[in-house]
Structure formats: structure tokens, C-alpha cells
Design a protein around this nucleic acid. Structure first.
Lengths: 143, 143
DNA sequence: GTAAATTAAATTGTATACAATTATGACGTG
DNA sequence: CACGTCATAATTGTATACAATTTAATTTAC
């Protein structure tokens, strides 16, 4: 029973489970992120800040696949919470430098257990996780 | 060079590429969906409608992993475009039945080429696509 | 048979996402 | 040096998402 509309069925899509799965996994973060009063977007931004300490909005956007339209309000909120400082670059005033504060650095301690909690929810075999990781980055590379 | 914070690095995350990849893939739909004046959310809703012809908001939400807060405005827009009709169930007035119209049925013809276009963008080997599909549904099942 | 509990949508409020536009700074060329 | 071009953030407008609440209908308990 094959017809030309089969490709339009939701169960034959690859993108739909990708979209749904991403949403559901992000939702799993909520109870843990609530404890440190961060949203998921704020959390991934902090992950980059914990690693880089300082970078500008453009660089942050390239790493996170987000543009200034999304990042500007997120960074303002993180600044309001005291975790980062935003300041125009002295060298090139078009760039906005974002710098991790002491308080931001301290927050890392409270977040360190989160990845393993999420790992438990997702609950994949090591090989599956490795395969998924590889395929996702392949797609990101292809696009 | 292993330390206890490695798990917090963005490159060691599985959820982040999942989130980013889903977003980027959805973005690939834009040029094609623009041609038929649908958003991605409207498109996946129509995919279910094309297959089911009629169902209520709750059933739609279970299939799409969306709640009425998201679906209500989407369905109102699809109704305004003439692709579906919304009406309270006679049997149980709490339920809102959504039914595909003739115009909605016709739209399928214009959408039928989209899945293959997206397939070209994502550009995976058949085995990779199958593996990805399997892993994504496994995660959705685990959550 | 009615009050309490449950269910389904809609509404409200908050936070993304992102396209398109705007504002400002930097740079290159005549 | 002036001017056109380019680059970077911020802003604007639209459309999700989803938690929490509200409204209305139905079912359950007693």
C-alpha cells in the first residue's frame, strides 16, 4: 500500500521526531534549572561562558546557533542576575564583549550535576549516544 | 586533562546538538513553506490532518507533543486560511473536533515534494537516517 | 440527585527564535 | 578627508512553546 503521499505522513518524517525530541529533552531540564533559576537558553549561554570566560555576542551566536535578536535579551537577564558583564569593546565598539563574573563562576558549582541527571532521563546506550552525537553534528555540518 | 567540569562543556553535550540541529533543520523548511504560506507548526499540523481527516485537539496534541496553548492559535490560523474547520463535539462538548476541508485536502498536492527537498538538505546515508530515527523515538519513549 | 472531582480547551503571562530593519562604528577608496 | 560599504548589536514584529490558571462540560461518589 504505497502511495505518493506516504512521504507526508508524520511517522515517515525524520525532522518531526528531531523537533519533538529536542523539545521534550529541553523540558527535562526544567526541574533542575529551576533550582538555579535559569532557563535552558540562559543555561547553554552560561555553559559557553564557563568555558570561554569572555567573548563577544557574535562569537557566542556562532557557537550557540543563535542571533543577537535572541541573545541580547538573554544576556541582559544574565547581567541582571549578576553572572556576566556586557561592555562594548575598546578596540572595536561595534562588538559587545560578554565577561563571566565571580558570581557566574560560582554558579558552575551548582550546575555541575545537571548533565548526569539529564543523561539518566535520556537513557541511551553509550554506542547509541555516540552515534546520535555523530549524526547530529553531521547534519549541522551539511546544512 | 579531565576535570569534574568537563561534563558542562558544550561540546560534551548531547542535548545541545539535538536542540541546535532541530532548530536548523526546521529553518530549512522556510523557503518551501513560504511558497504555500505555512509555518512549520502549521505544516506538521496539516500533516496529521491529511492523514486523519478529523480528530480533536487532545489527540492532535498527543501526536504532535503540543498542548492546547500552542495548538489553539495554530488551529485558528489554519481555520482562517480555510484548511480546517473547528467545532465542538456533539457527543462531548468539552472536545473540539478539527476537520480537514476540501481546500486543506488540495494543499497536500502542493506540499508533496517538500519531504524530499528537506532530505536533500539533511543529506544522510540511509543507515544513518534509520539509526537516527530509531534513537530519537527511543528517547521519546524513555521520557 | 447533587456536590466534588476530573477533563478539555482557551486564556494569560513569560521566554524564546528569527526575519527584517535600524543605528552605529569601522574601513576602503578615490 | 568624505563617502559608500560593510559589520555588529539592538530593535521590531510575528509565531511559537509551555506553565499556570480559568471556564465549561462531564463523570464520579455518596
Amino acid at each position: 500500500m504505497i502511495n505518493k503521499y506516504d512521504a507526508l505522513k508524520i511517522e515517515n518524517q525524520l525532522c518531526f521526531p528531531l523537533y519533538a525530541c529536542a523539545k521534550e529533552v529541553v523540558r527535562q531540564y526544567n526541574p533542575f534549572l529551576e533550582m538555579i533559576d535559569l532557563t535552558y537558553t540562559q543555561y547553554i549561554t552560561m555553559m559557553v561562558m564557563w568555558e570561554k570566560k569572555e567573548l563577544n555576542v557574535k562569537e557566542l551566536g556562532q557557537i550557540l546557533y543563535l542571533d543577537s535578536g535572541t541573545l541580547t535579551p538573554v544576556l541582559k537577564k544574565l547581567e541582571a542576575k549578576g553572572y556576566v558583564i556586557r561592555a562594548r569593546s575598546k578596540v572595536d565598539e561595534r562588538n559587545l564583549e560578554v565577561r563571566l563574573t565571580e558570581a557566574g563562576e560560582k554558579l558552575k558549582e551548582e550546575a555541575v550535576h545537571i548533565p548526569s541527571e539529564i543523561g539518566k532521563c535520556v537513557n541511551l546506550e553509550a554506542e547509541e549516544a555516540a552515534m546520535l552525537y555523530k549524526i547530529l553534528y553531521k547534519i549541522l555540518g551539511n546544512i
